[in-house]
């Protein structure tokens, strides 16, 4: 397949960049001719909002062959930054179903051809895709799930208090200080 370009991999796994419109075709060949029976995982990536067109969203697919005891990695970047789309692999791999729903839910990548592309972790009607780089960790105000209406006082979805966080755990001696910025005031 000439359109596949080898991709650097720190772990030495066989990795290729794949154009998004050839993804379905490639997966079919991998499954039928190269014995990659399972799709282990789909990892959606967001390279940041300031990337040029076609360089922001993408998905990394990990295939595994039980007979050849071999992994293979495919990376497909979406052509559009505003409305990222990829073909769905649910017709080939059943495991793609929930993985694609998760990628859609948290990263907003639309998988065309998915039989039921609904949110899987956040509730239906949630307006954002929270793992995008431009989404704040504390969250944004949003309407509550439909299941939360009723004749009682409803709470709100509002940004969580960060209190000086997010706390990091750096390597080295200054572990406690970096992890808990509030502790610095007391030292």
């Amino acid at each position: 397949m000439p359109y596949l370009k080898a991709r650097e991999a720190a772990d030495g796994m066989e990795s290729y960049n794949c154009p998004p419109d050839k993804l379905l075709e490639t997966a079919e060949v991998l499954k039928d001719d190269y014995e990659f029976q399972t799709l282990d995982d789909i990892a959606a990536i967001d390279m940041g909002p300031d990337r040029p067109s076609g360089g922001r969203f993408g998905a990394v697919y990990h295939f595994y062959s039980h007979t050849r005891k071999l992994y293979l990695r495919l990376c497909a970047m979406c052509a559009d930054n505003e409305e990222p789309k990829l073909p769905s692999l649910t017709g080939l791999y059943l495991s793609a179903d929930w993985a694609e729903r998760e990628a859609y839910d948290l990263m907003g990548i639309v998988f065309e051809g998915h039989p039921h592309l609904a949110r899987i972790l956040m509730w239906d009607g949630y307006p954002y895709h929270p793992l995008r780089k431009d989404f704040p960790l504390a969250g944004l105000p949003a309407p509550l799930p439909d299941s939360f209406d009723g004749n009682y006082e409803a709470t709100e979805v509002k940004p969580a208090p960060m209190e000086g966080g997010p706390f990091k755990a750096p390597q080295g001696d200054s572990f406690a200080e970096g992890r808990e910025p509030r502790s610095r005031a007391q030292i």
Binding site: L121, M122, Y128, P130, F135, P136, L137, A138, G139, L140, Y152, T155, P159, A160, P161, M162, E163, G165, P166
Partner: peptide
């Protein structure tokens, strides 16, 4: 809310 100061977590069940 504990350590989950994030977009998905209710910050204490006493809110409801």
């Amino acid at each position: 809310g504990g350590m989950f100061r994030s977009y998905s977590t209710l910050q204490g069940v006493d809110k409801i």
